[in-house]
Amino acid sequence: MLGTAIERRRIMIVLGVFAALALITPFLDLFLQSLVTEILVFGILAMSLDILLGYTGLASLGHAAYFGVASYASAIIMTKKSWVVTYAMFTWTDSAGLGLFYLFFIGVLVAIAFSAFFGYLAIRAKDVYFLMITLSLAMVVWGLAYRWSAVTEGDNGIIVPGRPSLFGFSLEEGLPFFYFTLAIFLLCLGVLYLITQSPFGRTLVGIREREERMEMLGYNIWLHKYLAFIIAGTFSGVAGVLWTLYNLFISPPDVELITSAEALFMVALGGPATLVGPVIGAAIIRSLQQFVSIYVERWPLILGSIYIITIMLSRLYGVDGILGIANKFRRSFAAENNPKD
């Protein structure tokens, strides 16, 4: 296979880009630093959805739910003083400089629990039904966030006073928090990459391409899909906890359908089944939102048009997102150079 050399070069390129990002960011202004951090957070969300949409071929329209529950869980244990046990645990771990680990542990655990339960209900369904079930289960989470005001503060949302320190090292400033986010992002990217390269990941691709054949070969389709769902939920939870820490505020709009659709669009825009593509999608959408909404008040109108134009173009020309265009060019280039292939 010629795969390995190309694959190694790709990894070097991606690592190079992020090393460059780590070097450049300190020289950017505060607005851009914050934007880059936000892109990384949504990049994790989009990557996690890519496991489901790109690799397994399951279009989930409720991915903001796992993001949201983790986000809410971490916000609640940081602020809810009347919940004695969780709050005492938080202050205790925080005083030891381990508050972040506690937040991630609980937040991700909650995300895993929700995705395990919702996935159990949803995986049986196919195609459109899967999409609608994930959508409506996510609406349950939104409904809880919106109406269960005893816990979630309802429409007002939860304001978090500050970020816990990491081993006594303060993350309150934008730049240290950026590096923290970048570290978590690279960890997620690495783990997800290993998952997609593993036999398990290959099986997911097989299921996406030919479900019946994989079933005949003796693979447990249900279990593979279910595990993919939980993995996606887990990393979505990581993104959720980071979002609370980044934004220091969580409210129902962060959990709603629009966020789920946006995650789906980031994957479709960047290129499904590429891991890096969805991050590019997240970068484009988030930067556009930040820049365009300064100058134009009609952002949703523009966002809607971007959705339609992108999908129309990609379907009419038969490419999958931005990385899909790059691949198409490279393939035709390679075909010209080596006609025998």
């Binding site: 329209l61 195609d127 109108l301 809607g304 048009s305 379907r315």
Partner: peptide, 22 residues
């Protein structure tokens, strides 16, 4: 143009939802 491509349908109709709303 999308046939049975669920993902494309969903994203385009949600695009229209945004446009109609705004």
């Amino acid at each position: 143009h999308f046939g049975h491509d669920t993902l494309a349908q969903v994203l385009v109709t949600i695009g229209f939802a945004f446009i109609l709303q705004d």
